[in-house]
Amino acid sequence: MTDLPEMASGMLGDATQGVPGAHIRDVFKRYGEAHSAGDVDAILALFADDAVVRDPANAPEHRGKSALRAFFEAGIEASGGPIAMTLEGNVRIAGNEGAAAYIVRTINSSPVFRVDTLDVMTFNEQGLIAQMIAYWGPENFQQEG
């Protein structure tokens, strides 16, 4: 890591402690890849057994692997199959938390839709996702083609 300006060092405090940044970046990458493959088992492997997902952020939470499986399977079905989920820019990391924007495109729906999301993940000590909150709403949908 490069030396930080004194101002930034003072603001960060313990934000550089926790799960390694490379691991967090890899999880965000694998999360998008697993969605793009429609691989619910690969998605679930990234989450702790008691993980909580709110997707979108103002929706009721889904807690635990069974609820997450049902949620992700329903999402694939509603989208007509897998979705293309691509990171947009860098993953932002502070301690055990990361945030990144994704561009999500339906593949098999007609018409095709693009959705811009911002996903925020909190990781436990084992490097698994303990909580994921996705920020998106009607304003983030665009019809393509």
Rank of each mutant, 00 (worst) to 15 (best):
residue 141 F to T: 10
residue 90 N to F: 14
residue 4 L to H: 08
residue 53 V to S: 02
residue 37 A to R: 08
residue 14 D to P: 12
residue 6 E to F: 09
residue 142 Q to H: 09
residue 31 Y to H: 07
residue 85 M to I: 07
residue 88 E to I: 10
residue 14 D to W: 01
residue 5 P to I: 00
residue 59 A to I: 02
residue 61 E to V: 02
residue 45 A to R: 06
residue 2 T to E: 12
residue 33 E to Q: 08
residue 96 N to V: 06
residue 5 P to W: 01
residue 9 S to H: 07
residue 68 L to M: 05
residue 14 D to Y: 03
residue 79 S to A: 10
residue 41 D to F: 00
residue 45 A to E: 13
residue 18 G to T: 02
residue 86 T to Q: 00
residue 52 V to F: 06
residue 33 E to A: 06
residue 87 L to A: 03
residue 120 V to R: 13
residue 78 A to I: 06
residue 4 L to E: 06
residue 118 L to P: 15
residue 141 F to V: 05
residue 10 G to C: 06
residue 45 A to S: 14
residue 19 V to A: 05
residue 41 D to S: 00
residue 94 A to M: 01
residue 10 G to A: 08
residue 87 L to G: 11
residue 101 A to H: 15
residue 58 N to S: 12
residue 39 D to N: 06
residue 25 R to Y: 10
residue 27 V to D: 02
residue 132 M to Q: 05
residue 4 L to W: 00
residue 68 L to R: 11
residue 129 I to T: 03
residue 9 S to T: 11
residue 136 W to E: 12
residue 115 V to A: 14
residue 64 G to H: 10
residue 87 L to S: 02
residue 106 T to I: 06
residue 53 V to Q: 08
residue 11 M to G: 12
residue 39 D to S: 06
residue 105 R to D: 13
residue 119 D to I: 07
residue 51 A to C: 09
residue 84 A to L: 11
residue 88 E to V: 12
residue 19 V to H: 03
residue 111 P to D: 12
residue 123 F to H: 04
residue 116 D to I: 12
residue 126 Q to L: 15
residue 41 D to W: 00
residue 103 I to D: 02
residue 9 S to Q: 15
residue 107 I to G: 03
residue 26 D to T: 13
residue 36 S to H: 01
residue 111 P to W: 09
residue 88 E to L: 09
residue 100 A to P: 08
residue 95 G to H: 09
residue 83 I to E: 15
residue 7 M to C: 04
residue 115 V to R: 15
